[in-house]
């Protein structure tokens, strides 16, 4: 905890345009030490550091192929075979969700990687989300984007383009 805090402070004081402020902060710290309030400062710094320092634990990656589905006309159902590959640093319980349904597409137990394939039928973007199911805290998402050649104003086309 104290190492993280020191790292955070060093990074903060090295900020170029903050140097004048940093000097003032140093002076303030000295003053606080004299006032026996240093403990409060370190608690504050520690709290900030805990929330901003990079989380080294359990990084997730999620790959989606392809990332786009193309239909000829906007509003028509687009068909695409998607493949999702994920990898975690730690083994655990993971579930893959889609914005098209509430139930998970698939769950893995005691795994640190997984693969999922499915044909997706969609008219709007689909969000895939991988979630660590025990804590629910670690998630990562990828979006399948819908695209089209001709936009919805089909009537303006069909008034002339009969084929």
């Amino acid at each position: 905890m104290s190492l993280n805090s020191a790292f955070f402070l060093a990074m903060y004081f090295n900020g170029g345009d903050k140097m004048k402020i940093s000097v003032k902060i140093h002076q303030k710290i000295a003053s606080l030490l004299r006032d026996n309030r240093i403990i409060n400062l370190w608690l504050l710094v520690g709290f900030v550091a805990m929330n901003t320092a990079p989380t080294a634990a359990n990084e997730l990656t999620l790959k989606l192929k392809p990332s786009q589905c193309v239909a000829i006309h906007q509003g028509k159902t687009c068909y695409v075979d998607v493949e999702l590959l994920w990898q975690a640093q730690d083994k655990g319980e993971y579930c893959l969700y889609s914005s098209q349904q509430t139930d998970p597409l698939k769950c893995w137990s005691k795994s640190d990687n997984g693969r999922f394939e499915r044909e997706v039928l969609a008219r709007k973007n689909v969000l895939f989300r991988l979630r660590e199911s025990k804590t629910g805290g670690v998630t990562i998402s990828k979006e399948l984007e819908m695209a089209w050649i001709y936009k919805r104003n089909a009537k303006s086309r069909s008034t002339w383009r009969m084929f």
Binding site: Q74, A147, W148, Y150, K151, R152, N153, S156, T159
Partner: peptide, 20 residues
């Protein structure tokens, strides 16, 4: 930008304006 999915025309569905 006709084929750009990020620029959805929000005009009336019956509108014939626009093109390709």
């Amino acid at each position: 930008s006709y084929a750009d999915e990020a620029k959805v025309d929000s005009s009336d569905e019956n509108s014939r304006s626009g093109g390709y």
